[in-house]
Design a protein around this nucleic acid. Structure first.
Lengths: 345, 345
DNA sequence: CTGTTAGCGCGTTCAG
DNA sequence: CTGAACGCGCTAACAG
């Protein structure tokens, strides 16, 4: 006798001489089922290895227990950590995670959003593409009461649930750290100002200077597009073309920070004594570069977990009081900024 | 009049005064449908924005157009690149990708495999956990004719489709490169020998030495468990405890290579002149460390694409002649090994 | 070439 | 407390 692979509630019903609906109810602890019946059913279900056919459940409920993640690139430290956190939290709660990358292309973002909608994801977590300035492609989710959580790179001019860090404060803290180390000629290697995120980091930078009565050299504020390695090297080189160069550099990501160190060394500068450098994100490369790069820790994994929690809360109508989760970043000081040697007592 | 959000084939059927099955067939270019009818149907479908309800299709076909990916950690350069390639290739073909991480825990691997099975993935791509030495949890897929592709970290003693690199050859090439640079006291920082992958890299290392008549110092072969930063630093330090140390180090991953450089420098060695170092994978950290780390390029993204191709081929019964795809790695020489300065002509 | 019918497996009214 | 019946949306076998 071949063992049956996929048990259905009908199989259990036949075996116990009950109706399928009774099985269905017993299995999900419906109140109107007798304790004895319920026990019998659950016992047999376990014995036979019954598992509900998820596709049937989905069709019936017009909804799949699947969280969609729509981001630009999976293979970037921040996103891969974010996804890792999302996956972990989702699976704990019995949800699946489906991934979709846009390669920072708005057209693909729209297409993929539609696809995710079609498979009836129960919630969407997204970090919008660089090009995204309009949001009608998210309307379909709102119309069908599917929660949408924007994370990290979020729309500034669009209402909705958002999970972010305080980029202004982080920029302020990073810059203040440089100032406390004695830097006075400060520079900033920033990202695209189309993104609120980089605008805020720059704003924090400016405010820190102002609060400490430092003069801002406009030549020392450079904004790139991608802050890739190539671009960052070019930008960093510009900082030193004036012969003197800055004595403190705040890079808006770690690659910018790393490149600032590399270029500074090429110009014969000592890091951190001639020029101190701090990055942003606390990616693994911080510990690889020489000297190790100070950075602002970005809680990517935790952000992922919070996004999942927000989705589940929304589905259960446990609406949070606030639409905004702001996570704190933390200064991770390393040799690239630590000029003042503390004396052990 | 409120616009209907989810059009079904019944809606179209009513509007065109046809039967649902005709619509269904017309939409998928079934041969037995009149050209005129088909044109009408397709036109109206587009006009009304019809999109098939995927959950119904899945239930009907007992299969979801979803590829499952079961790996240890999403947030590792190799895996995030692999997934990126998988996602890209899958979406081009209209497949979704569902991700599941095991955190290198066999129990979780089993659970998640079952979950993926339950949602009726049409194919599985997996890189087994470090602990996995038995494979009954993959049996359910084979029994239901769901293709399983093992990638990178594959079972040595289990038959099935595999996508790998030639770790023996890569190890041989990396080592030969060191030898060609004049290294004679060679060391290897390897990973867990439970994994065929690391065994092969070591075998290549040994063979290269033998082929060049070099003596192998057994103290210079160290194998770790995870080759994490911490572990690699410890291992690398052991190499230099004899006072002299090796003059060439092959690290089985880039972190090991990077740590070898860091430790060598700490011992006052010059890289590459006193000791040349090569890593494995060509992760971003290679270009960050000073001097930049030579490495063996590992085609993660392409491996992902090939895995997807294999799944689709299996589903279409275009069975490949061979169960094994072996991709080539490429030497990426950088300053950490380049002792001989080539003179430009 | 097209229509009718019958499920895929489950959840949920509505009756007993 | 339990069962019968229906339908989620689609596809495929069977008729015509």
């Amino acid at each position: 006798m071949k063992e049956k692979v996929n048990i259905t509630i009908h199989d259990l019903a036949k075996e116990l001489d009950l109706s399928p609906s009774t099985i269905s109810r017993a299995l999900k602890d419906h109140p109107s089922i007798g304790a004895q019946t319920r026990a019998n059913v659950q016992k047999l279900a376990k014995l036979r290895g019954y598992r509900p056919n998820i596709m049937a459940v989905n069709l019936r409920n017009q909804q799949s227990k699947t969280i969609g993640v729509l981001i630009s690139w999976i293979n970037r430290p921040f996103f891969s950590n974010l996804i890792s956190g999302i996956e972990e939290a989702a699976r704990e709660k019995g949800y699946n995670v489906i991934i979709s990358q846009t390669t920072d292309d708005l057209k693909i973002e729209k297409d993929n959003a539609k696809t995710l909608y079609d498979i009836r994801i129960c919630g969407l977590i997204t970090s919008i593409s660089i090009e995204t300035l309009e949001y009608p492609h998210f309307g379909q989710f709102y119309r069908s009461n599917t929660p949408v959580i924007f994370v990290d790179r979020v729309p500034g001019d669009f209402q909705g649930q958002k999970v972010v860090i305080d980029n202004y404060q982080a920029g302020y803290d990073a810059t203040t750290h440089l100032i406390e180390q004695g830097c006075t000629r400060l520079a900033h290697l920033g990202g695209s100002l189309k993104q609120g995120l980089y605008k805020e980091r720059l704003r924090g930078f400016r405010q820190a200077l102002e609060d400490h009565n430092l003069v801002l050299n406009p030549n020392y504020i450079l904004n790139g597009k991608s802050l890739s390695r190539e671009e960052s090297l070019v930008l960093a080189t510009k900082l030193f073309e004036d012969g003197q160069g800055p004595d403190g550099i705040f890079g808006a990501n770690d690659m910018a920070g790393v490149c600032a160190i590399l270029v500074a060394k090429k110009y014969g500068k000592t890091v951190p004594d001639d020029v101190a450098v701090i990055g942003f994100n606390d990616d693994p490369i911080c510990e690889i570069v020489d000297p190790p790069l100070s950075s602002m820790y970005h809680p990517a994994r935790e952000m992922g977990r919070i996004c999942v929690k927000r989705i589940l809360d929304s589905l259960n109508k446990n609406n949070q009081s606030d639409d905004l989760s702001i996570l704190t970043t933390e200064l991770v000081p390393r040799k690239s900024t630590l000029r003042i040697v503390e004396i052990e007592s």
